[in-house]
């Protein structure tokens, strides 16, 4: 079996070119290994080989990000490697950020596995840990001897496409991704043990640290409602009867956009809910309860609002991930803007 081909990325310092005074050198590529690549190549043994090393100055990268990224991508592409590795960067901030950014660019553009390594407090770790596998190192190059075997072991698994274990098993920085596992004891027993620890002021470890949410600042109030074009959007699952786009009853992977032209109100003949998280009987018998088209048409006639937008957007909020919800809204918010909508009423259930 042929060896997996790796392109390795390092900065000017680890290439032995120089320190801060050489940090402005543009990217160059050399065949084979340079600097820490030697130890990495040794740790790969028969599985993988470093076919080329790309060297770039930290300042150059930081100051010419777009160009540097494009240049480096071309270099990587020219070698058609099976994998890309950057660093380790330890606690060097600009180097760590560059390693992270280039790894992400290679992963997104070339679709090959990428790996870097750095200290957990390196700013690059914070920015890229969600996107990348970053082997956790200590905060200085004195840790090189220990960091290299960890990176090599994980790199081999990734190149082979093997299933990866937990952060502590594989030595990477927690990526914030939730994975299901079987624990040794059932949940109720764990809960009681946690409670006994907590009430006795003994240490305990929560199984889910509280999440952080984005806070969206409310938009400025509309100046003249009489002239405003108002759209109605819902996570309550109202869809044309038969749910033509098969929006899921829970964990929606899509949203729908439907025409309201000709509807003075919705009825159980024309619309229904696809939502699986509440009692659907009342929404099905009168869908205006969730998507208030009847009242909005009245307000339109009375001149309270300028007009009701032609389309409504809808999805099912039930169990739908924040990630999907953000994706949907980013898309249709642009359409609403393009259609000249001034205000949106969002209904939930």
């Amino acid at each position: 079996m042929s060896k997996y081909k790796v392109v390795h990325y390092i900065n000017q310092f680890f290439a032995g070119i120089g320190g801060e005074e050489k940090a402005n050198i543009p990217p160059e590529m050399r065949d084979g290994v340079v600097g820490p690549g030697m130890a990495l190549a040794a740790a790969f043994e028969a599985d993988m080989e470093i076919v080329a090393t790309i060297i770039c100055g930290d300042s150059y990268y930081a100051e010419n990000m777009e160009n540097a990224e494009a240049e480096i991508l071309e270099m990587v592409k020219s070698k058609s490697p099976d994998m890309f590795i950057a660093g380790p960067a330890f606690n060097a901030g600009r180097y760590g950020t560059a390693c992270g950014a280039i790894c992400k660019a290679v992963k997104d553009n070339l679709g090959i596995p990428v790996l870097t390594g750095m200290y957990v407090e390196n700013p690059g770790a914070d920015i890229f840990k969600k996107d990348l596998f970053i082997v956790e190192t200590k905060n200085s190059a004195a840790d090189m001897r220990k960091a290299i075997p960890k990176m090599a072991a994980l790199a081999i698994k990734m190149a082979k496409g093997e299933e990866l274990g937990s952060p502590s098993e594989e030595n990477y920085i927690e990526r914030g991704v939730r994975r299901n596992i079987f624990r040794e004891k059932r949940g109720a027993e764990r809960a009681v043990e946690m409670l006994v620890a907590k009430v006795n002021n003994k240490p305990f470890v929560t199984e889910y640290p509280m999440p952080v949410f984005d806070h969206v600042a409310p938009a400025a109030a509309l100046k003249d409602l009489k002239k405003a074009k108002i759209a109605v959007v819902t996570s309550g699952g109202i869809v044309p009867k038969g749910n033509p786009d098969h929006i899921e009853s829970s964990s929606a992977s899509k949203y729908g956009k439907y025409d309201l032209t000709g509807f003075d109100y919705l009825t159980d003949e024309t619309h229904e809910t696809a939502h699986g998280g509440y009692d659907p009987c009342y929404a099905n018998s009168n869908p205006n309860r969730v998507l208030p088209v009847d009242v909005l048409r009245d307000l339109e006639k009375e001149g309270v609002i300028g007009e009701l937008h032609k389309y409504f957007y809808t999805t099912v909020g039930n169990g739908t991930s924040v990630g999907n919800a953000v994706k949907f809204s980013k898309e249709y918010a642009q359409e609403l803007l393009a259609d000249g909508v001034d205000g949106v009423i969002m209904t939930s259930t």
Binding site: K130, L195, F213, S321, V322
Partner: peptide, 21 residues
């Protein structure tokens, strides 16, 4: 948390909920 496990797992949160099973 989504099929990829990358989203917030709960719809509400508070720092006082420091012991979760």
């Amino acid at each position: 948390a989504g099929r990829d496990g990358a989203s917030q797992s709960l719809a509400d949160a508070d720092p006082k909920a420091d012991a979760v099973v």
